[in-house]
Design a protein around this nucleic acid. Structure first.
Lengths: 73, 73
DNA sequence: ACTTTACGTAAAGCTAACTTAACATTGAAT
DNA sequence: ATTCAATGTTAAGTTAGCTTTACGTAAAGT
C-alpha cells in the first residue's frame, strides 16, 4: 500500500523527529511507514491526516484490487 | 475509538456474514470491530469506507484528544 | 577535524489485529 | 415446537504495528 507521507512531511517542513513528536510515536515508526515497511494503525493514520490538514484516503492509497497485502521485506 | 459500522451495515442491508464475505475477512473480525473490541487495520478501514461509499473519517471517529487508546475489555 | 542534524538499519520484545473453531442466544419463520 | 438465520461469546494461535536501544552514514556548520 502506497503512501504520500514523505511528500506531506516535507511540504510541511517537518523532520522525522519533529513529526514523531507531534504524533506521539517513535521516529522508527515514521521511518517504517515512509519506507513502506508497514501501515500505521487506523487511529495513527487519522492523526497523520489531521496533521496534514487532509483525509486518510489522500495520504494512504489502497489499490482497487489490493486486498490485504503483506508488508515489503 | 467509536465507529458507525453497525449503522452503515444495516443501512446497506448486510448481515455480518455477508459483509465479512465482501471484505474478505472473518465474521469474528466484523463482530469485534462493531463491538469496539479493536480497530480495523488501515487497509481494511479503507475497504470498509469504500464498501459504504464514504470515507474513513465518516465511519471511524477518533476523538480530538484521543491518542492511542487501548481497546475495551 | 569535529559536532550537529537528519536519515537509515537491525534486533528483540510487547500488544493489537487478525484467524479458526466451537458453542450459546434470540427472533422469525413455517 | 423446532428449525434456521443472525448475532454473540470464548479461547488459542499467528502476524503486524509499535517500542526501545544501539549503531551507521552523510551533509552542512562552525
Amino acid at each position: 500500500m502506497e503512501n504520500l507521507m514523505n511528500q506531506f512531511r516535507k511540504k510541511f517542513g517537518y523532520s522525522q523527529d519533529k513529526l514523531a513528536e507531534i504524533l506521539g510515536v517513535s521516529r522508527q515508526t515514521i521511518i517504517s511507514i515512509e519506507k513502506g515497511k508497514y501501515n500505521p494503525s487506523l487511529p495513527l493514520a487519522i492523526q497523520i491526516a489531521r496533521t496534514f490538514d487532509t483525509n486518510v484516503e489522500s495520504i494512504f492509497l489502497l489499490g482497487e484490487n489490493e486486498k490485504n497485502r503483506r508488508h515489503k521485506k
